[in-house]
Amino acid sequence: MKPTFIFVSHADSGDIHTLGMAADGQLTTLHTLTLGGTLMPMAQSPCGRWLYVARRSEPMAAITLGIDRTSGALSKRGEAALPGSMAYISTDATGRFLFAASYPSDLLSVSPIGADGQVEQVQQQVPTGRHAHCIFATPSNRHVLATSLGGGQVLQFHFDAATGALTPNTPAAWQARPGAGPRHLRFHPNGRWVYLLNELDATVDRFTFDPEAGTLEHQQTIASLPANFAGEPWAADMHLTPDGRFLFTSERRSSTLTAFALDASNGAMTLLRQTGTEAEPRGFAITPDGQTLLAVGQVSHHLSRYAIDATTAALTLQQRLPMGQNPNWIEITA
């Protein structure tokens, strides 16, 4: 059985922690790699050999890290300049291109990845509406979706997997409701449904996805906030369990995780419950077996490990660990 490693990036202490997960789920901090700067979004290569992290402070760059698949230790292999402070990075399905979305610079970028796994110089920049926030390839690797939080859009692109080129689809974007603030997108494991978390009103939108056209069709909107919530929403992250039965979101002002059940016939969402968690849970992740949720708090500087009830999606706290300063992104080896 291959070991499971968890990587946590820290925006203020400028380091990445490697945690090991035992067969019973118990977590142990194994290594700390200090790189310096504001380290935030991360992405793994499809082959599992490389971890990429975006440094959001000057000099802004995509840093390539090698993963020791036996110990989980990370080693720096190189870095390549990025044209902005990136809120999100991901690779295409082949691992040959790195996508990035810049919130302050209002742009997307595409960088080649060499045969040695290292990110190379940016080859394309795409201007967006205000505050690009998320970008990733669709399951077929023929299209790319991205969000513009300030522009209130989900952008739709054709993607040439041979050259890495992005070209606008028709239509080029889906327009969200005023004040929604599209932030993060996730595909259902079946590849037919897409979910969108909106930061500014903390709602979730559900779409059907046309794999041939690469376009979205809106189906449902549902609120994720606790019933007694008062104030300005600040939704953050969203993940589905690998079996596609449950969807979870995080909200920073209430410091909660919200669980939804997904209808197996059409993907429709039903609100189940909220669970209090670490303060300002910007990032969380679900293990590949779907049994465990890990959440970090930006201002609590801790990680909480929860067991996910397979029937109700209820979260039960199992462990709490100190992290570095301002933990915000989690990657788990597959």
Rank of each mutant, 00 (worst) to 15 (best):
residue 221 T to V: 13
residue 221 T to P: 03
residue 221 T to C: 13
residue 221 T to F: 04
residue 221 T to M: 10
residue 222 I to P: 02
residue 223 A to S: 15
residue 223 A to H: 11
residue 224 S to V: 08
residue 224 S to M: 08
residue 224 S to F: 06
residue 224 S to R: 04
residue 225 L to D: 04
residue 225 L to V: 09
residue 226 P to G: 14
residue 226 P to S: 14
residue 226 P to A: 14
residue 227 A to Q: 15
residue 228 N to C: 11
residue 228 N to V: 12
residue 229 F to R: 07
residue 229 F to E: 05
residue 230 A to M: 12
residue 230 A to P: 01
residue 231 G to K: 13
residue 231 G to T: 09
residue 231 G to P: 11
residue 231 G to M: 11
residue 231 G to A: 11
residue 232 E to G: 09
residue 232 E to P: 00
residue 232 E to D: 14
residue 232 E to V: 15
residue 232 E to F: 04
residue 233 P to L: 11
residue 233 P to E: 12
residue 233 P to C: 12
residue 233 P to F: 07
residue 234 W to K: 13
residue 234 W to I: 07
residue 235 A to K: 04
residue 235 A to E: 03
residue 235 A to H: 04
residue 235 A to I: 10
residue 235 A to C: 11
residue 236 A to K: 05
residue 236 A to Y: 04
residue 236 A to N: 08
residue 236 A to H: 06
residue 236 A to S: 15
residue 237 D to V: 04
residue 238 M to Q: 09
residue 238 M to H: 07
residue 240 L to P: 01
residue 240 L to D: 00
residue 240 L to N: 02
residue 240 L to K: 05
residue 241 T to H: 01
residue 241 T to D: 00
residue 241 T to K: 00
residue 242 P to H: 03
residue 244 G to A: 05
residue 244 G to E: 03
residue 244 G to N: 06
residue 244 G to M: 02
residue 244 G to I: 02
residue 245 R to H: 13
residue 245 R to C: 02
residue 245 R to T: 02
residue 245 R to W: 00
residue 245 R to E: 02
residue 246 F to W: 14
residue 246 F to L: 06
residue 246 F to N: 01
residue 246 F to Q: 01
residue 247 L to W: 00
residue 247 L to T: 03
residue 247 L to V: 07
residue 247 L to G: 00
residue 248 F to Y: 15
residue 248 F to I: 07
residue 249 T to M: 05
residue 249 T to C: 05
residue 249 T to G: 01
residue 249 T to V: 13
residue 250 S to N: 08
residue 251 E to I: 06
residue 251 E to M: 07
residue 251 E to Q: 14
residue 251 E to A: 10
residue 252 R to W: 03
residue 252 R to G: 01
residue 252 R to V: 01
